[in-house]
Design a protein around this nucleic acid. Sequence first.
DNA 1: CCGAATTAGTCTATGTTATGGACTAAATAT
DNA 2: ATATTTAGTCCATAACATAGACTAATTCGG
Lengths: 415, 415
Amino acid sequence: MTQAVRHDAMRARNLALVLGEVGAREPVTRAALSEITGLTKTTVSKLVADLIEAGLVVETGAVRDGERGRPGVAVRISGEHVAAAGLEINVDYLAVRVVDLSRSVRLRRTQAVDNRSARPGDVAARLRDMALTAVDEAVENGLRVVGGVVAVPGPVDLSTGTLHNAPNLGWRDVPVPSLLELPFPVRVENEANLAALGELWFGPGPSDFLHVSGEIGVGAGLVVGGRLFRGTHGFAGELGHVVVSPDGPACRCGGNGCLEQYAGRDALLSAAGPTGRPTAAAGPAGRPTEYTRATGSHPTAGGMASLASLVSRLEAGDTGALAACERAGWALGVALSSAINLVDPGTIVLGGIYAPLFPWLGDVVAGTLASRLGRMRATVPPVVVSRLGSEAAALGAAGQVIQRVIADPAASLQA
Amino acid sequence: MTQAVRHDAMRARNLALVLGEVGAREPVTRAALSEITGLTKTTVSKLVADLIEAGLVVETGAVRDGERGRPGVAVRISGEHVAAAGLEINVDYLAVRVVDLSRSVRLRRTQAVDNRSARPGDVAARLRDMALTAVDEAVENGLRVVGGVVAVPGPVDLSTGTLHNAPNLGWRDVPVPSLLELPFPVRVENEANLAALGELWFGPGPSDFLHVSGEIGVGAGLVVGGRLFRGTHGFAGELGHVVVSPDGPACRCGGNGCLEQYAGRDALLSAAGPTGRPTAAAGPAGRPTEYTRATGSHPTAGGMASLASLVSRLEAGDTGALAACERAGWALGVALSSAINLVDPGTIVLGGIYAPLFPWLGDVVAGTLASRLGRMRATVPPVVVSRLGSEAAALGAAGQVIQRVIADPAASLQA
DNA sequence: CCGAATTAGTCTATGTTATGGACTAAATAT
DNA sequence: ATATTTAGTCCATAACATAGACTAATTCGG
């Protein structure tokens, strides 16, 4: 059930409503906000004044849009005070992103590390260092980091932040927030879910889609009506173990013929045949390389090297590589057709390793969907590529903090 | 975005909150409601007074529970004034249920009709007659039918109430509400969704589950946190076309090896081999038999006769019938393992034709799930049988109206 | 160039709703 | 019989939004 509504809750909701509309249509004048929300001009003015005082909103000066009458003073979300940290623990790298309230990315740090062999405490310490230097830099720019979210490759208990198990890291029941000990509240969430939210808040697309995160495993995050669907225990979106063929190759989950056995990173690479740089010969784990990049595909650490070589073989027209992609695309299409029948997403967004492979996968996936769904549905969901690639999860993590502030400005208005 | 909150909205929400708690814990005293909701005794008293005046709630007299102090006056949801109609158009029958606000079923009418060959207008006219006589009877009992929902076997445009297409009826783009022309607002919804909601509101079980409706097709309704998940366009839950084997038998949807080809009613019956009363020799379509029943499995119209004979063959230990059930159960398990990985339901509820077949299916389904999911998940969702059987959809339909009244009593408080 | 029209935003009085504490009512404990 | 305890009502107050008057700043038309 919902909570009781007192006067303070009424005000809190209206603050959230106004701030949300500012974010959705900035720059907007108070008059326009009054018309959009249905609140009176008086009320909107008072709410906006509070938001300005809290540093969440700023005036951008008068707007003269050729209309008659006194010009309004537009406001927009302020990116100058409040910021959020998006952290990511992945198999091959650690990442930190600092995003301000206006969703501008203020800082990017990625460190290539092979975390497969590492202990949770050591990884957390390294990520903590990265986060703290990032926070320092943010503070120098006048920003206050009000919270952080950590993206991890496995299911999470949302209330405690415990990572239940991450098979590709070899971790079990890791209490991530207490290991990090950061000077702001930290939540933890599955990377596939966060990648979907990253696509929602930082991508160009719609607000109804299934985002597929191709990594070693294959995860998916479903966003409907701008909200993430988590399922009963928060384990929804395990696309990697959807059945492609019930008598297919055995999977580590105990089943047979799961999608992961056809389109997971390792399955894809080994199906493509021998490659120049095999997975085992990945870079040294001890000495991480630090660097910053603007956008595009991710660094070559661990098996990533093989992915890069797979792409170059595909570009060269290598038949083995092409066949492997075709098979993976077909399997993805089969699994996605089940997913579409079950959860009815508006669009399919292919991310993770499928982003760089999209030129060789996309059409096969779309074709498989069309042949399996076309006769039932008036429209088959379009298959598009993620523009964020592997940055999606860390951005989604930061975005989740931003979203909380925007959804409940009254809470952060006191602090 | 949400709506602005004015004083009237505040009151509306608090009314809903109080009414909801009354429904959840009846009988309750005002004092207990005050403690539960956090609203003051004064406020609760005023809200309850309004609810009583509107006829939604009644006092049940003092409660002396052995405690010290003045005994409170308990209130409960009133079943004496407001009622809802649940209507169902199925392939083999039409059904009407009238349910009062306290969720007591006040009237059951079912008419066996073969609607396969019938025109929408004729079917609607017959259902309309049934509904009107039901409403008359309700009025005689002092009830006011404030709305109705129609369960139909196919996807629906919720805003207009148009049934897009019902392959088993042979209908396309049928504007159900305008055909019915009933003296109360009518909405339309997919029967699988409504069956899930029926299970939620009238069944004994939990509020997180996937309800499987085995009919000619196989539908599913997902309820998470007491809310139905509909997907982007409202087409979620098409379990019947989830892939069991990608190179299996061709399906009418254009795909291959869909669940429906293994566990749909027709597939199941024909796999069971020749039967005493084949599907084609179903009862006469022209002369419907009217009757009323309390509970249990549904009438024998159309293919239903064959289902009854399948059950008797199973009871007799017929090996062909047993093998068909085993195969269907295995396929259901395969499809459900995909569904569990994708949407993470808390429980699997088998309804429709799977309810009477449960003794021969249940263990196979559960076993298949255990073997495909056991190694990944700490707990595999339990597989249980629906106690409502084929009554679930019509009850869910009526329940949806009730639910609306309880979720927004302020709206019906004016009328 | 000036007044009329138009739109933005503020100010003031008012209405609606929930709160808090005093108060009455009705039971049990001693 | 009296004290204690709990239920529910009454009344003054506080919080918030509203309605409409008012001021401010622009464009339009002559």
